[in-house]
């Protein structure tokens, strides 16, 4: 697939998504909104898994920390300012990622996976078992943040359509931001670290700093997704930080194709839609989901992002006969 076709395909997909609110069906608007939030979450993890080679199994921690931050920072009977809670929740998630990164990035491979999981479990229990989080039922966000600037309100997040487009625009900004970061000297180093970290060190790179930068950035963007989730649904529970969520977002990345931002967005769509469809068919939907994941890993190693290349190769094979 050349760059032009790829670009047109992405624009078409974007146009289709942008038309969802026209349906007027709250169910679909909220569902697709949720998928877009998960897509942002998955892209943030892809920065680690797909581009830096760091398989974090605790990424839900940063999502959940930011989601709780919105609920906790918002006053009980009035709306908080978006321009305060948004940067604050992202900042707290990034700060947590920075501090946790200082420890976990000293480990490698399977140990890294286990230690990221362990820190996420600690975060889970903080919100589950201390007065901070409101126990296993979680806590409500009574008023969604207000976008008012000196009395002028450009959009209203209580309006489901405004909320939807707010998420969509955020997704586009995150996509363009990450695409740009990956073109930067910083991004090139991350890809080099994924390929061969030892070689990068012998070339004189202090790889720990770059990995810490990536981990913090991914935590912050994961936090952005958590902020959107809390704002979209108006409540948060400790389950947002559970290892199931960390596993789900990892599956979205694998399903979509590690190291491909657009593919990972597709992965988030595929995952959430399968969950909806399979859950309609049977309560054992996770069995079906598991089967699909196994099939993708076996037969589609590049994930959904690998499909266009396969079609192209198949067509070229046909022409040469």
């Amino acid at each position: 697939m050349n760059a032009q076709t790829s670009f047109i395909l992405k624009l078409v997909a974007l146009a289709v998504i942008a038309c969802v609110p026209l349906s007027g069906e709250s169910f679909y608007i909220e569902l697709v909104g949720k998928v877009l939030v998960m897509a942002i979450f998955a892209m943030s993890l892809d920065l680690l898994v797909g581009f830096t080679g760091l398989v974090s199994f605790g990424h839900a921690a940063y999502f959940g920390i930011a989601a709780y931050a919105v609920a906790i920072l918002s006053p009980q009977y009035e709306a908080a300012s978006l321009w305060y809670v948004l940067p604050a929740s992202i900042g707290l998630a990034a700060l947590a990622a920075f501090v946790i990164g200082l420890f976990v990035l000293r480990t490698k491979g399977i140990y890294f996976i286990m230690v990221t999981l362990a820190f996420a479990q600690m975060a889970y229990f903080i919100f589950h078992d201390t007065p901070l989080g409101g126990g296993s039922d979680g806590t409500y966000l009574n008023n969604k943040p207000s976008s008012a600037i000196f009395g002028w309100e450009p959009f209203d997040l209580n309006n489901e359509i405004h909320m939807f487009y707010f998420i969509l625009v955020t997704l586009i900004v995150v996509y363009l931001f990450l695409a740009r970061v990956l073109q930067s000297p910083f991004g090139r180093v991350l890809v080099g670290i994924k390929s061969n970290e030892h070689r990068m060190q012998s070339l004189g790179y202090f790889t720990f700093r770059y990995k810490l930068g990536a981990f913090t950035l991914a935590g912050g963007l994961g936090g952005l997704a958590g902020f959107l989730y809390a704002t979209l649904f108006g409540f948060v529970t400790p389950e947002l930080l559970s290892w199931h969520e960390s596993g789900n977002v990892l599956l979205m990345v694998i399903l979509g194709g590690m190291g491909n931002l657009a593919g990972v967005i597709a992965g988030a769509f595929a995952f959430e839609l399968m969950r909806e469809v399979f859950a309609d068919i049977t309560k054992y939907w996770q069995l079906l989901m598991g089967g699909v994941i196994v099939a993708v890993v076996l037969f589609l190693p590049g994930g959904l992002a690998g499909i266009p290349g396969r079609i192209k190769r198949a067509m070229h094979g046909g022409e040469s006969k």
């Binding site: 740009r180 970061v181 073109q183 000297p185 910083f186 991004g187 004189g204 202090f206 700093r209 930068g213």
Partner: peptide
């Protein structure tokens, strides 16, 4: 030889 990891917006 010229590492400035925090400049993430310039193109390599």
């Amino acid at each position: 030889r010229r590492q400035d990891p925090w400049r993430i917006f310039s193109k390599a």
